[in-house]
Design a protein around this nucleic acid. Structure first.
Length: 291
DNA sequence: CGCCAGGCAAAAG
DNA sequence: CTTTTGCATGGC
């Protein structure tokens, strides 16, 4: 067990205390480039959303592996354990990196605490179509504009926020193409409109694909307009938990060429290639001056 | 002004 | 089949 439930707290919105035994760093996860709607509050509380589930989570001062969370035990076990990938032992995975791969060892030490989030497939499809040739702050801005225009508004004790809209919520909005065109999507607008229709009219079954092998999964997404090799890999990794896949983007390309002499280092990390990829992506993001 | 950002489809070779 | 080109927008 990589986490332990502790006592219920009485009469507060953060109602449960938990201990997390494995690698877990909220700030690094939020900055890891896989999620675009995590919010950090001034007091160090982080907010995550998936579907219509909202979690507020805060590290306990002085006790680095204890966290206050806003959900009950059932929701933690049913939703967030899977979301944060707590069935996987990241500490063990890091220890599997051989001494011969010094760059990977450094990247993993730097990115220690990152986890591969199991996010909503529909949200990942739209988010990573938007991501192509866009800076991360601009990706976040576009996604937020979509949520504001089509998503359900939720008021919590902390804030008011919009959920990521379902395909139905977008497709059933009269003249939804025009509202989407306000979201700074640029040339990706036509890809997003097609993706809404593809999912709404069930030309692709995002739930059903969970039972398919990764190759079939990739091919299904690459068949969509605006989804190529890289975006398909991101969806498979960040929505379907396919950790054997390592998306190759411009940053990873630079590392493969500059550090690994053109040889992809991820393929030898059979079942954890995607985790290694995230360590290196995070390492590159936080050491931009070295490129 | 130029250059690039978690790439891709379409055109050209 | 492989390589090149155009693409919206914003930040630096």
């Amino acid at each position: 067990m990589l986490f332990a439930l502790m006592h219920q707290m009485d009469g507060r919105q953060l109602e449960m205390l938990i201990r997390i035994e494995d690698d877990f760093d909220l700030k690094k996860i939020a900055d890891s480039g896989q999620c675009f709607r995590v919010r950090e509050f001034d007091d160090g509380t982080f907010r995550f959303v998936t579907g219509d589930n909202i979690l507020y989570i805060k590290s306990q001062p002085g006790k680095s592996n204890e966290y206050e969370v806003s959900c009950d035990e059932e929701t933690w076990i049913g939703i967030w354990t899977s979301y944060f990938d707590f069935e996987r032992d990241y500490s063990l995975i890091r220890s599997s990196i051989p001494n011969s791969d010094n760059y990977m060892l450094n990247a993993a030490e730097c990115g220690k605490g990152i986890r591969i989030l199991k996010q909503d497939p529909w949200e990942m499809l739209i988010s990573f179509i938007i991501s192509q040739r866009k800076a991360i702050p601009a990706i976040k801005a576009s996604i937020e504009m979509i949520c504001e225009r089509f998503g359900k508004e939720i008021k919590t004790e902390y804030e008011s926020l919009y959920l990521f809209p379902t395909p139905e919520e977008i497709a059933k909005t009269p003249d939804f193409e025009n509202l989407l065109s306000e979201c700074k999507l640029g040339y990706r607008l036509k890809y997003i409109i097609e993706a809404v229709k593809n999912v709404y009219y069930k030309e692709i079954d995002l739930e059903g694909l969970k039972k398919n092998d990764s190759m079939t999964l990739l091919e299904a997404f690459k068949g969509l307009y605006g989804v190529g090799e890289k975006v398909a890999n991101c969806i498979a990794l960040f929505a379907y938990g396919r950790c054997e896949l390592a998306p190759v983007d411009t940053w990873i390309k630079k590392v493969i060429e500059g550090i690994y002499d053109g040889v992809n280092p991820f393929t030898k990390y059979t079942d954890s290639a995607g985790i290694m990829q995230q360590y290196i992506f995070y390492y590159a993001q936080t050491h931009k001056q070295e490129f």
